[in-house]
């Protein structure tokens, strides 16, 4: 009875899904398929080799410091880094005094309260402070950027497909729109053509130009170099515990593999070892075991 009912209900579901399928096939056959403009002109991020790639990779602290310099001198005027504190810069190899100095000289002061009047005021940043936002509010940020909102960069490499390579490719991906780009997809007022960006047109003007920063370690500040450095820095801001994680990972894996080998040997020993054969020889129905059971039952005060 349930089977008959089941078959009827099953036929019902198959029929309704098939009805949707028939319409879908009909539409698919009759309608024309146009490749979307975004799909046609979009470019994938280029392959970039980072020092922190792969299970053994580590951050290159000199590169992170260069990337921080690019962030500080270029990106920070529009983009916040609100989940990172100045004290975290110790991880990049800066000393106590250097971090204090960086916080002290930061362009944007930290919101505070005037201790005398109690009115809202600002003060210089301390190492314990998080990077202050360049704009006091989202409204102010949009007003200053033609209604576009510069995203916070703390997590940007984890929040975009392609990670740091996407960020670096985007920074170097600006070009003139190709001639065959349809008119309605051309960059409008305040937009710039960048085929790495999913929409093709991005509100951020090309931020990097040759020699924009002068690196303390003498590295040549080309645009691709700066883009790679700042994307590596942003990989660190998004995943500051990467090196701890991998070190702990290797230790854990070695331990687990060792423990699992022991567990396997124990398993084999239980199933094939000498001790188990003795258990198998008798078995619970063995008269000797039955007697032991009866004894156990009477010990525990259970009848039967």
């Amino acid at each position: 009875m349930i089977r008959l009912l089941g078959i009827l209900i099953g036929l019902g579901f198959v029929a309704v899904a098939g009805w949707s399928l028939a319409w879908g096939v009909g539409a698919y056959v009759t309608e024309e398929h146009e490749e979307s403009v975004e799909h046609r002109f979009h470019k994938e991020p280029r392959d970039i080799a980072y020092s922190f790639d792969g299970p053994l990779g580590k951050y290159d602290h000199r590169q992170l410091q260069r990337g921080f310099q690019v962030y500080k001198e270029v990106c920070a005027s529009c983009h916040g880094l609100s989940y990172v504190a100045f004290r975290n810069l110790h991880d990049l190899g800066y000393g106590e005094e250097e971090v204090k100095a960086i916080a002290d000289r930061w362009q944007v002061p930290v919101p505070s309260v005037d201790p005398k009047t109690g009115e809202a005021s600002t003060r210089k940043a301390l190492p314990a402070d998080y990077f202050p936002n360049p704009y006091p509010s989202e409204v102010a940020a949009r007003a200053a950027n033609g209604n576009a909102l510069p995203p916070d960069l703390s997590l940007i490499t984890k929040a975009r497909h392609g990670g740091p390579a996407y960020v670096a490719s985007l920074l170097t991906g600006y070009s003139n729109p190709p001639a065959e780009l349809p008119a309605d997809s051309r960059p409008g007022q305040g937009l710039y053509y960048n085929p790495i960006f999913p929409n093709l047109n991005i509100a951020m003007p090309p931020p990097l130009r040759e020699g924009q920063v002068s690196y303390a370690d003498g590295t040549n500040p080309t645009v691709p170099q700066m883009a790679e450095d700042v994307s590596a820095f942003l990989a660190w801001t998004a995943e500051p515990k990467l090196e701890n994680r991998r070190a702990a990972g290797w230790a854990t894996l070695f331990f687990l593999i060792f423990a699992t080998i022991l567990a396997y040997l124990a398993y084999q020993n239980v199933w094939h070892g000498g001790a188990s054969r003795r258990v198998r020889q008798t078995g619970p129905l063995d008269p000797e075991n039955m007697a032991k059971n009866d004894e156990a039952k009477s010990d525990a005060g259970i009848a039967g």
Partner: peptide
């Protein structure tokens, strides 16, 4: 016990890497 070891190795590989 052996099965749990294999399970934890795979979980750790994903969690850490």
């Amino acid at each position: 016990g052996f099965g749990a070891g294999v399970f934890l190795i795979l979980l750790a590989a994903v969690v850490f890497f």
